[in-house]
């Protein structure tokens, strides 16, 4: 089990990694759905190319942040089953740590904005 300090060494996450992990947080998903979800989650700002999506998925699989979770019952356009990916326990902890880090940053920014110049 990774300690808090060890988790911190992986932060901050890149936007691509953060949004992919976030996309998988509620439920496992397949590649095409992840790409669409990332676009929606980022308000259209992050549009993943297929090569970026899969090289990132590969790295996350190797690092144990995500795992394969079988196939989607709905096949792709060619009729092939679509492999799905799920957030692993480590990935969930890293996502939580990154979210907490971002919340701290936002809280600090809000504090300064509310308090005026300190």
């Amino acid at each position: 089990m990774m300690t808090f300090d060890e988790l911190q060494t992986h932060l901050p996450l890149s936007e691509t990694t953060f949004f992919i992990l976030l996309s998988l947080a509620p439920a496992p998903n397949h590649g095409y759905a992840i790409a669409k979800d990332v676009q929606v989650l980022s308000g259209g700002r992050v549009v993943l190319s297929v090569s970026t999506l899969y090289t990132t998925l590969k790295r996350l699989l190797e690092d144990g942040w995500i795992e394969r979770s079988g196939t989607d019952p709905e096949p792709d356009e060619t009729g092939r089953p679509r492999k799905t990916y799920a957030l692993a326990e480590l990935g969930r902890r890293i996502l939580d740590a990154e979210t907490a880090r971002l919340q701290t940053l936002v809280a600090a920014a809000r504090l300064r904005a509310v308090g005026g110049e300190a």
Partner: peptide
């Protein structure tokens, strides 16, 4: 695009090549 995928290392291609081609076609 399927030809471009062939430029990837063999192990990467074997694991993700078909998925990449399908996702690219859908996109």
């Amino acid at each position: 695009y399927a030809l471009l995928i062939r430029l990837y290392p063999a192990d990467f291609r074997a694991e993700f090549g078909a998925e990449m081609a399908a996702v690219f076609a859908a996109t």
